[in-house]
Design a protein around this nucleic acid. Structure first.
Length: 671
DNA sequence: CGCAAATCCTTTTTT
DNA sequence: AGGATTTGCG
């Protein structure tokens, strides 16, 4: 397939900074991959001079794959395709000396951050979970805005003063633990490049051309990082769509697109408006919906794929029935139109909405895949093993220490831990160091002390072995899991043997990932530290996604759906309070919710069905939600509302029997 | 110190 | 309604 004129312009223009305003489905990934190929083939760039940055691991992986296909694996050697956070991690790792960091640092996820904040504030304030969440997000926002604790302290008012003090202490403790949080992965490199001209030049030479995908998602610190990396020469292409900016709560703002024009007056802007994904009717609805938002750049999607069928709105009696009807519709269509399960996506606002759909899919024996929902890494067994690995890499990681010091049971209880904690506090060292202080034996009971000793010895012994290259380190981890009798512990602590087996399977999966990363395959082998940090960034999750993309119905949040496309899309829970989410209604941030709806609509290639429930249980009580305002903003000629009242129940019955028959058929086929 | 019951709190989106 | 955390007992 040929590039259209706009696309070609975006690919071949390399004279200066370029902004590609790429509407949904306008082939932006193709433009990026073609551009990289163009740079390598026709311009004076080697693959290793080029970096492409995305926001999700999944996007990075997909892009890498597509470039490999276009350019060939060999020609791609040294090409950087990564998320912002991975790039940041890379820079930090190579500049630890300048940053004054010890090697072997840990990455804190926000649960770790919350645990640290809790420890910091517990004595003086009675903190609840929502306070901690607020604190984490405040600190995160300050970091994203590149404001140091001092700067915040100087200007904070009211409640913020307290948070600012906490911020300052939080930073100090992170440093003491030799730990970084996710935001540091952007902030540190940015500050580093800003303040060290020599380092900056080194990286500007290293990355001679920079491409940024999903540019509308950049926050202040990420944008500054981009600016510092491209420098005066400003050789870069950013691709974005202000209508798909759905991460303002993370500091990303559509206005960043406009900012670019101010900072680079010579900026060239190319608009991609031809859509290669959806039927015209779907685009019409999307365009009209998003017209309700103010715009920096005008943009109107069109396609030549035909007008298409009307969009539909389906009501369920309650959320259960909503799910049943969606599943019934899928079963019916698959039977009548010979569609594949994999052609369907069910998109929702919040992860909790997935439950009912999962249940209904299981009942009908329909294969499905849920993406996101932090499932794997939030499993207790994974967090346990990760904590062991983190402690191996960085013994000063108190969060990791606390998680596993008595897991499996070693007879080190709260009393002993309190003593160790006091000692650590008093000596201003980490808990693990405190365990090695002479005189600890006088504070603990004999058995507890003995247990602590052997724990310390275990970690040190394993860490030493894990530091050795290749096979040795893999064995070290295998032996560790054996030694602590984790499998036995799982069987002891799980409600059923089946559950324990399941959990052990997860552990083995994690183990497999780590071993794969430690061994050298095509790329160079990672150190354990690198592997652990990569896992903290959830880098393997996407890899797992790749493995089973069979014929399965896709379930995901609207956020997670960005960048994807499906022939048939259900947008479920189209209700006030849910799709404009209640909190966004309260904050008056309807525009972002509208963009979220826009993203959902533009995922659909052929058919789009909205569903909602007349009744929904929420916090134990039943509410009767209004249909989402966005449904009324659509051109009503193109939307077919399911008739209400009597006709509904008739149709419902028909659908139900169809579904039952289909389910029966399905069962017979299976067994 | 470890396990079971009782309470209470939840639901926005993610690197 | 369900899951997580905290309390109370053996």
């Amino acid at each position: 397939m040929q590039l259209n004129p706009r696309q070609r312009e975006a690919v071949t223009y390399i004279g200066g900074p370029l902004l590609v305003l790429a509407g949904a489905g306008s082939g932006k990934t193709r433009v990026i991959t073609e551009k990289i190929a163009h740079l390598v083939r026709h311009c004076d760039y080697r693959a290793k001079d080029i970096a492409a940055v995305t926001f999700t691991n999944k996007a990075a992986r997909e892009m890498k794959e597509r470039i490999h296909k276009t350019l060939g694996r060999q020609a791609c050697r040294g090409l950087r395709v990564s998320t912002f956070h991975t790039l940041g991690l890379d820079i930090i790792r190579r500049e630890t000396a300048t940053l004054g960091m010890k090697p072997g640092f840990s990455l804190f996820d926000d649960q770790d951050s919350m645990a640290l904040l809790k420890a910091l504030t517990d004595d003086e304030l009675d903190v609840d979970k929502s306070w901690l969440k607020l604190a984490v997000s405040k600190i995160s926002n300050w970091k994203n805005d590149m404001r140091s604790p001092d700067a915040v302290l100087a200007s904070a008012e009211g409640d913020d003063q307290l948070f600012a003090v906490v911020y300052e202490q939080y930073q100090r403790h992170l440093k003491a633990y030799n730990a970084l949080d996710f935001d540091d992965l952007i902030l540190l490199p940015t500050v580093l490049l800003r303040d060290h001209p020599a380092v900056r030049e080194r990286w500007q030479k290293r990355i001679r051309y920079l491409l940024v995908d999903e540019y509308q998602d950049t926050n202040t610190s990420q944008y500054q990082l981009v600016r510092l990396l491209v420098g005066e020469r400003a050789r870069f292409t950013v691709v974005g769509d202000d209508d798909q900016s759905i991460y303002s709560w993370r500091g990303a703002q559509p206005k960043n697109l406009a900012l670019l024009q101010d900072d680079f007056p010579q900026l060239r802007v190319v608009k991609l408006e031809q859509n290669y994904r959806s039927m015209e009717r779907i685009l019409k609805c999307a365009n009209i919906l998003i017209d309700n938002n103010p715009h920096v750049f005008e943009k109107r999607l069109f396609s030549d794929m035909g007008y298409g069928e009307p969009l539909r709105v389906i009501f369920g009696r309650n959320e259960e029935n909503e799910a049943e009807r969606v599943v019934a519709e899928i079963v019916r269509e698959r039977f009548l139109e010979k569609t594949r399960y994999g052609d369907y996506a069910i998109l929702y606002r919040g992860n909790h909405q997935a439950r009912g759909f999962e249940k209904s899919l299981i009942n009908n024996r329909i294969p499905y895949k849920m993406t996101g929902g932090q499932s794997f890494f939030s499993r207790a067994e994974i967090k346990d093993i990760m904590a062991y690995l983190r402690l191996l890499v960085n013994p000063d990681d108190d969060n990791a220490f606390l998680r596993i010091i008595n897991l499996p049971r070693r007879g080190i209880g709260p009393t002993s831990m309190e003593r160790i904690g006091e000692l650590a506090n008093q000596e201003r060292v980490s808990l693990f160091s405190a365990c090695q202080i002479h005189g600890l034996n006088t504070l603990l009971s004999a058995p507890a002390f003995h247990a602590v000793q052997s724990f310390v010895e275990l970690i040190q012994r394993t860490a030493r072995k894990a530091a050795e290259p290749g096979e040795q380190s893999v064995h070290a981890i295998r032996d560790l899991i054996k030694f602590i009798q984790y499998e036995e512990w799982l069987f002891e602590s799980s409600p059923s043997p089946a559950a324990a087996e399941m959990r052990m399977k997860n552990v083995n999966e994690l183990y497999r990932w780590v071993s794969d990363m430690l061994k050298d395959d095509d790329d160079e082998a990672l150190s354990l530290e690198q592997a652990v940090n990569k896992l903290m960034l959830r880098d393997m999750l996407s890899r797992q996604d790749e493995e089973d993309d069979g014929d399965q119905v896709q379930l995901m949040t609207l956020h997670a759906s960005k960048g994807l496309e499906f022939p048939y899309v259900f947008m479920v829970g189209m209700e006030e309070g849910l799709l404009p989410h209640q909190s966004s209604i309260d904050e008056g941030n309807i525009e972002e919710e509208r963009r979220l709806a826009y993203v959902g609509i533009t995922r659909a290639q052929q058919r789009l069905i909205f569903t909602l429930a007349r009744e929904r249980r929420q916090y134990g009580e039943t509410i009767r939600p209004e249909p989402s305002r966005f449904l009324f903003e659509l051109p009503q000629d193109d939307v077919k509302w399911e008739d209400s009242q009597t006709k509904v129940s008739h149709e419902e019955k028909q659908q139900r029997s169809a579904s039952n028959i289909a389910a029966l058929r399905n069962m017979l086929k299976k067994d």
